[in-house]
Write a protein that binds this DNA or RNA. Structure first.
Length: 754
DNA sequence: CCAACCGTTTTTTTT
DNA sequence: AAACGGTTGG
């Protein structure tokens, strides 16, 4: 292959360990890549080098990423480094790669070519129906926990038929066996199946393993610390022939244990591959020295890590701020003030990210930002593809693709209402359960009988769609469905703010179909319909398709969503015990839980480039009741010489105890100095400023009459809306129609006149 | 078959 | 605080 000037230039910009990782030849390699150490550069440059310098065809390189966003980014970066090659690179998440391989080799794996992928909600619906048919109490056997057992078994590569859950085992096994049976009948695979089936196929079908592991000359896996056992087995099988496996990750940033991720996969890499080369990337290019010291102080207290310490040539930087607020409202004001500061200084709002441990914390922050008219954006949260109308349309398309898909069929059988009510559906379900032939077969049988006109019409409707599906393009087919089912008509007739929002969402979905068709490269093996459905089930990370990602806004997200990102200024909100760390505090708790919280804090701190603000509030509403909080232990671990305490956020007379490797607080017996002492209540601005025990703000504060239908009102969270009805309860509630949010029942003293 | 009403639950993180 | 699920009454 000829010399690529771009690649050559890039090599000289790499540091020594980075260059070793990029130029590493054959054989296994594990790269411990600390936060901000240029990990993505190493992976993309390595791929580029393999293609441009070593002449490896891109389709013979497999790159596994953690998110779809990361997969897209890698493709884009490779395209820039070595134009014309990115299209052929085999890159994707574990799930998308397995889905692709399972389809390509469906026949020998005993799968239908156009299998459907069930997400968690579909899986739950399936289990719920099984419980009903098998007459199990869904209180005693919660569908979520059954789903958990199934998921866990597949992650650990044990047959779901062998789940062991203690004394309930026989019942759970019966349910799981029925689940597997019906999934097969429905031609559906759940998320766990995608990996589990592929691994089983590879391990049991030697020719297949030879074919695939022969194809992939090089296998690279990013975020290796977050792989689970099944994923490890997959990687081992795919790399079995050439043994050119590169595992990149950071055990300190392993934050998905709860989802089956096992840090041992990266820590014990050398046990799997005794000849593996080990590279550690420890130079950090992102943060100031102070920020790194703060992060290191937290992570060095973790047990059982791969020894390493980040260092940087960057400046010492500003002190880390630890801010104490009397309430979460005041904490939100801190965020508002920080945003205003950045706007004033010309840095802009996009320089600011706010992290929290759980989504529920975003509400107060949103209210404050809205009230201050500061634009913000939430990463994650409610997903587009989770909205009811979107799921309805997708369910229609899935039924058109394969009517055996019971879960989708039952979702749409009476949507929009077509006179197939609960009684009819129940009769149908009983019939299906008795015959064992699936719901669609039951529909067809029952639909042909007299007295079941509605059902017959429904069957005819679906069949007419199926007949036309091949001739119509995806978007036209979807439009036809919306029209001929009357779905659009019903929404138009409803003519409310909510129905408008739904129509808009459907319009957006149709738009994304058209875009998909335009960009689509085509695939001889799969129809566009199949591929589109697969994509929307697998590409659920909100960041992947965010149109306004670079708008000038504050960004807010959970710490999990922040992994891999960086911002000039980071505010970590809610640094309190029982919130962050959230778990692992109960006496009998698994110590690993607290360890994971610690790594989560490390991830959060290391996102910051220049300024890190750690905020906590002495009181906070949890489940609508006021809770007194204590500072997070992680705050106490940051060296005080790197900290500026704001709002008496400092511990009372701290003494460092190197022995215990933690900050021990000497409260000197003075109750007044305690941080968890009753706070002096400072009233914050805004419509929520209500003294505890004081009468709620009168809804008629402007001296007018009580609330009445048709009135325009404003809510801090939902914006302007129109009163639909006024409740008689106390405290008074009002039902409001908010454009874009639908109908909400809101306590009247949380409203202002618009 | 629906709206209204009640008590209950939510809040970890998500491919 | 507000959404949700189940029940009941029209």
């Amino acid at each position: 292959m000829q010399h690529d000037p771009m690649a050559a230039h890039s090599l000289s910009s790499l540091n020594d360990p980075q260059r070793v990782a990029v130029l590493h030849g054959e054989g296994p390699l594990v790269v411990f890549a600390g936060a901000g150490s240029g990990k993505t550069r190493v992976i993309t440059h390595r791929v580029a080098d393999l293609v441009a310098e070593r002449g490896v065809p891109p389709w013979r390189i497999l790159a596994v990423t953690f998110t779809n966003k990361a997969a897209h980014e890698m493709r884009e970066r490779l395209e820039r480094l070595v134009p014309g090659t990115a299209r052929d690179l085999a890159v994707g998440t574990f799930h998308s790669i397995c889905a692709r391989l399972l389809r390509r080799h469906h026949e020998r794996l005993g799968l239908s070519r156009d299998f459907t992928i069930y997400d968690d909600a579909d899986q739950k619906a399936m289990i719920t129906r099984i419980l009903r048919d098998l007459k199990y109490d869904d209180k005693r056997f919660p569908p979520k926990s059954i789903a958990g057992h199934i998921e866990k078994a597949k992650q650990e590569m044990t047959s779901p038929a062998e789940v062991d859950v203690g004394f309930e085992t026989p019942h759970v096994r019966a349910i799981v066996a029925e689940y597997e049976k019906r999934m097969t009948a429905a031609k559906a695979l759940d998320f766990g199946d995608l990996i589990y089936r592929m691994v089983r196929g590879l391990e049991q079908d030697e020719p297949l393993r030879r074919e695939l592991s022969g194809r992939f000359l090089h296998v690279l896996v990013d975020e290796f610390q977050d792989t689970n056992h099944a994923q490890l087995r997959l990687v081992l099988a795919l790399a079995s022939q050439h043994q050119n496996l590169v595992a990149v990750g950071d055990d300190d940033q392993s934050i998905y244990r709860w989802r089956g991720a096992d840090r041992r996969n990266i820590l014990d890499f050398r046990a799997h591959f005794p000849t593996a080369r080990v590279v550690k990337l420890e130079q950090n290019y992102r943060s100031t020295k102070r920020i790194l010291r703060a992060a290191h102080a937290v992570i060095e207290r973790a047990f059982d890590r791969e020894p390493k310490e980040l260092w940087t040539d960057n400046d010492e930087g500003a002190l880390v701020e630890i801010v104490r607020s009397p309430s979460e409202r005041d904490e939100a004001d801190l965020v508002v003030n920080t945003a205003r500061e950045l706007r004033r200084s010309g840095r802009g709002l996009s320089a600011l990210a706010v992290f929290y441990r759980i989504h529920a914390q975003s509400r107060v922050l949103e209210e404050a930002l809205r009230a201050a008219q500061i634009p913000y954006r939430i990463v994650g949260g409610v997903r587009f593809y989770d909205r009811a109308e979107v799921k309805d349309l997708l369910a229609y398309l899935r039924v058109i693709q394969s009517p055996e898909d019971d879960v989708s069929l039952l979702r749409i059988i009476n949507v929009p209402a077509r006179g197939i009510g609960k009684t009819s559906v129940d009769r149908l379900l009983d019939r299906a359960a008795t015959s064992g032939a699936g719901v669609w077969a039951a529909c067809r049988a029952a639909g042909s009988e007299r007295g079941a006109t509605k059902l017959g019409e429904f069957v005819a409707l679906v069949e007419s769609f199926r007949a036309r599906a091949g001739a119509l393009d995806l978007a036209t087919l979807a439009r036809t469905v919306l029209q001929e089912t009357g779905y659009l008509k019903v929404l138009h007739e409803e003519n409310s703010a909510e129905s408008d929002a739904r129509l808009q969402n459907l319009e957006e979905l149709l738009g994304s179909m058209e875009q998909f068709l335009a960009e689509d490269a085509g695939d001889a093996e799969m129809s566009p319909l199949t591929r589109f459905l697969e994509r929307v089930t697998l590409e659920t990370d909100a960041a992947a398709n965010n149109p306004d990602a670079d708008r000038e806004t504050v960004t807010m997200m959970t710490v999990h969503a922040a992994k891999g990102l960086e911002f000039p200024t980071v505010v970590c909100a809610g640094m309190e015990e029982q919130l962050f760390p959230f778990r692992g505090l109960e006496p009998g708790a698994d110590p690993e839980e607290l360890e994971e919280e610690r790594r989560l804090a490390y991830v959060a701190f290391t996102r910051a480039r220049e300024r890190l603000v750690l905020s906590w509030a002495t009181t906070r509403y949890v489940f609508g009741t006021l809770r007194t909080a204590t500072r997070s232990r992680f705050l106490d671990e940051v060296p005080p010489s790197d900290v500026r305490f704001v709002g008496s956020g400092e511990p009372a007379r701290p003494t460092y105890s190197p022995r215990a490797a933690s900050w021990v607080e000497d409260r000197g017996g003075s109750r007044l100095e305690r941080d968890d002492a009753p706070p002096v209540r400072v009233l914050s601005q805004g419509p929520h400023a209500v003294l505890p025990g004081a009468p709620a703000k009168a809804p008629t504060a402007d001296g007018g009459a009580a609330w009445r239908a048709g009135q325009r009102v404003r809510h801090v969270r939902y914006g302007e809306g129109k009163v639909v009805s006024v409740g008689a309860e106390s405290p008074p509630h009002v039902e409001i129609d908010f454009p874009g949010h639908g109908r909400k029942k809101i306590r009247a003293d949380f409203l202002d006149r618009a």
